[in-house]
Measured scan of single mutants.
Amino acid sequence: CHSECLGNCSQPDDPTKCVACRNFYLDGRCVETCPPPYYHFQDWRCVNFSFCQDLHHKCKNSRRQGCHQYVIHNNKCIPECPSGYTMNSSNLLCTPCLGPCPKVCHLLEGEKTIDSVTSAQELRGCTVINGSLIINIRGGNNLAAELEANLGLIEEISGYLKIRRSYALVSLSFFRKLRLIRGETLEIGNYSFYALDNQNLRQLWDWSKHNLTITQGKLFFHYNPKLCLSEIHKMEEVSGTKGRQERNDIALKTNGDQASCENELLKFSYIRTSFDKILLRWEPYWPPDFRDLLGFMLFYKEAPYQNVTEFDGQDACGSNSWTVVDIDPPLRSNDPKSQNHPGWLMRGLKPWTQYAIFVKTLVTFSDERRTYGAKSDIIYVQTDATNPSVPLDPISVSNSSSQIILKWKPPSDPNGNITHYLVFWERQAEDSELFELDYCLKGLKLPSRTWSPPFESEDSQKHNQSEYEDSAGECCSCPKTDSQILKELEESSFRKTFEDYLHNVVFVPRKT
């Protein structure tokens, strides 16, 4: 048989008469490798580009789960590009990614509803959504962080984005990388972005840091009482949809009607710091009717980097990364020049730590249904340095008659930039024990000054392991946590139920 035959053949030295091919099969003959313009397919066939392209389009058009959109890589027609490569849609070739590779997620039936953290986790790592997304989240724990972890990498949506009755959302900033909504599939009414009845939605994105392009379709905003109209108009300008909307697409009466839409800028007039305090004062603000001013709200939190936005980490279910302080308005003076500047002394802060701070007014709604208010920009203030805590785990070892090696770990709280350490030492008198000992005694162990690591005695271990207080009263049991108490109650309830079950099964009433 021919060298490319495997198993047997019907005619000697003829690659077209093989029972099976050793390498690849091409047009009725066995070959060692697939010549151009053919590609290896499933490690035994040679196919042309049209064959591989037909497989790709067949799966793409069917949208069946589990099928493969075949691509070409290293002269092979394979189910998908290997790690580190992405497909070129024009020629199906796998090309190296520039940075992290995109991950295209194809949605069944063309859309997916995100109504819980669990459903959001199914899209973790996706960068391109081939379909439409509907966000409908009523509640949950730590929602802002969970949504950002699972949806934060999405850069492109081919269909539309719909935010509907998501009472738990305060902001859409968890879509931190969303840059493009194509609108290839539109919501009824030709809408590519749809926001309806979101009672706590206050911000779409921080438009000073976020760009969003909507290729096709219109915007729809109705019944978002805490979303200011200025935020919607800003989205029109940034996304390129200005002029597409009709009169009733953006409701003037049901958007922002319960919001404090600040239209003035508060400026800080005085800032002073110490290692654990920050004193702030800002310019006074009074609405047209000074009785509408209820006070100020001061927001602050630790910020290692200057990239904080107002609604980071917030949701309507209680999660809030900001510390909020309510401040009463100052006494009002008739003389504008003698107006008191409101302020606040922030206490209990960490030394040498940068804080993000902003302040906003708290006002009631005027009778004319106009909203007044003022808010400052987010500023960054760093507390002063102070003395560091003591170095940890000092170790001293003498390696000769004239040297001592000293080692330690950095302090747990540096409280500033540590530039150097101060080492103090003092000579001590020799131990009298060394002169009084009889060095001729056998088995004498000389006193040693070398360091030995501390260890816990058996008594201390027994005390720590004991669940009861000892007789001397030195140790006591740790208080039980809520989960331990709940577990004990469940076990007790189970024992009672099981005992009742045994009584009912074992003891049967005697027939009379």
Rank of each mutant, 00 (worst) to 15 (best):
Y191I: 14
T254Q: 15
L298H: 00
N198A: 02
R369Q: 05
I114M: 08
K226N: 13
D115H: 15
I157F: 02
P351H: 05
F220R: 13
I134P: 00
F299E: 11
G243P: 01
S158T: 10
N334K: 15
K360S: 04
Q354R: 11
G125Q: 14
R164F: 14
D335E: 15
K360D: 03
P342T: 12
I135V: 05
I378Y: 02
L107T: 10
L294I: 08
V363N: 13
L252T: 11
H222V: 09
P336K: 05
Y270S: 08
W282A: 01
L252G: 15
N334I: 07
S401P: 03
D312L: 05
L265V: 14
R202F: 08
S333N: 01
G189Q: 02
L294S: 13
C228I: 03
N211Y: 08
L186K: 07
S166G: 11
E146F: 02
K277F: 15
C317Q: 08
S208W: 06
R124I: 13
N190Y: 06
S402W: 07
V238E: 11
A251W: 14
Q382C: 03
E156A: 05
I379Q: 15
S402D: 10
K242Y: 07
L406G: 02
L133C: 02
R138E: 04
I188T: 13
Q258Y: 11
Q245R: 10
W286F: 05
Q339C: 14
D257E: 04
N307H: 12
I214F: 11
G318Q: 03
E156L: 05
S338T: 13
Q339H: 14
L219R: 01
P388L: 14
A149H: 07
N198S: 05
T113H: 15
G183Y: 02
W322Y: 09
R281V: 03
D312A: 06
S333W: 02
W344R: 07
D393M: 12
G343E: 15
Y300A: 03
W286S: 09
P394L: 11
A120I: 06
R332L: 04
Y355M: 02
L265T: 10
W344L: 11
P411F: 02
L108C: 03
R202V: 11
W282L: 06
S269C: 15
L108Q: 05
E262L: 02
K360Y: 02
T383K: 00
C261S: 02
A259P: 14
S269R: 11
Q199T: 11
S269L: 10
R291K: 08
S132Q: 03
K226G: 11
V381R: 14
I250L: 08
H222S: 08
N224K: 00
G373W: 05
S321L: 10
A144H: 12
P304F: 12
P287N: 01
I232A: 11
M235A: 10
K177M: 04
R247V: 11
L151I: 04
G110D: 10
F268L: 07
V128H: 14
I405N: 14
F193V: 13
E184M: 03
D206G: 06
T213L: 09
T353Y: 08
R124P: 01
W282M: 05
I114K: 00
S173G: 05
I232V: 04
T353H: 08
P225G: 11
F175Y: 02
V390R: 14
K350H: 13
K242D: 14
R332T: 12
L362I: 13
N248E: 11
K162I: 05
E146V: 03
S389I: 02
Y167L: 15
K234T: 14
T215V: 11
K103W: 04
K242V: 10
S333T: 10
N150V: 02
L345K: 08
I135E: 00
N248R: 14
I379T: 15
W352Q: 15
D326R: 03
T215Y: 05
T383L: 04
N136Q: 01
H210W: 09
L293V: 06
Q403K: 05
A120W: 03
H341M: 06
D335I: 11
K277C: 14
L279V: 13
H106E: 08
M297R: 01
E146W: 09
G256I: 03
F299C: 03
P329W: 04
T215C: 09
S166K: 00
P391D: 09
K177G: 06
A259M: 06
D384R: 08
I395R: 15
S132P: 02
G313I: 14
K277G: 15
W282Y: 00
G189Y: 11
M346E: 02
L406P: 00
R176V: 12
K267L: 08
N320C: 05
E156K: 06
Q245N: 12
E368W: 15
P329V: 06
V324P: 03
H222Y: 03
F175K: 00
S132H: 03
A168G: 03
Y380V: 05
T383M: 09
S166C: 11
S269M: 07
N255Y: 05
V390D: 03
F311Y: 15
Q121H: 13
G348F: 06
L133P: 00
Q382I: 12
I232S: 01
S116Q: 02
Y223W: 09
R332M: 14
T323V: 14
Y305C: 07
G240E: 05
A356N: 00
K360H: 01
N248Y: 12
S171P: 00
G110W: 03
G131I: 00
N130W: 03
S319T: 08
P342V: 09
E236A: 11
S319Q: 05
Y223P: 00
T371L: 13
S321Q: 10
T361D: 00
S396W: 11
K337Y: 13
F311L: 09
V390L: 07
M235F: 04
E264S: 13
R332Y: 05
W205G: 05
S401N: 15
A259E: 05
L186W: 06
I129K: 00
L349P: 01
N200T: 02
R281F: 15
V324G: 04
L161Y: 01
S230K: 15
L349Y: 00
G189R: 04
Y380Q: 02
E246R: 12
T113S: 12
Y380E: 01
S208V: 08
H341E: 11
N340H: 12
N142W: 05
I357V: 12
P342E: 06
W322D: 01
L252Y: 05
N263Q: 11
E155L: 06
L107H: 11
K407T: 15
Q203V: 06
F299T: 06
K112T: 05
T213S: 10
I163C: 06
H106A: 03
L186P: 07
L266V: 03
K267V: 12
L153R: 08
T383S: 03
S376P: 02
P288Y: 01
N307Y: 03
P411L: 02
L266G: 01
L204M: 14
L147I: 05
E264K: 03
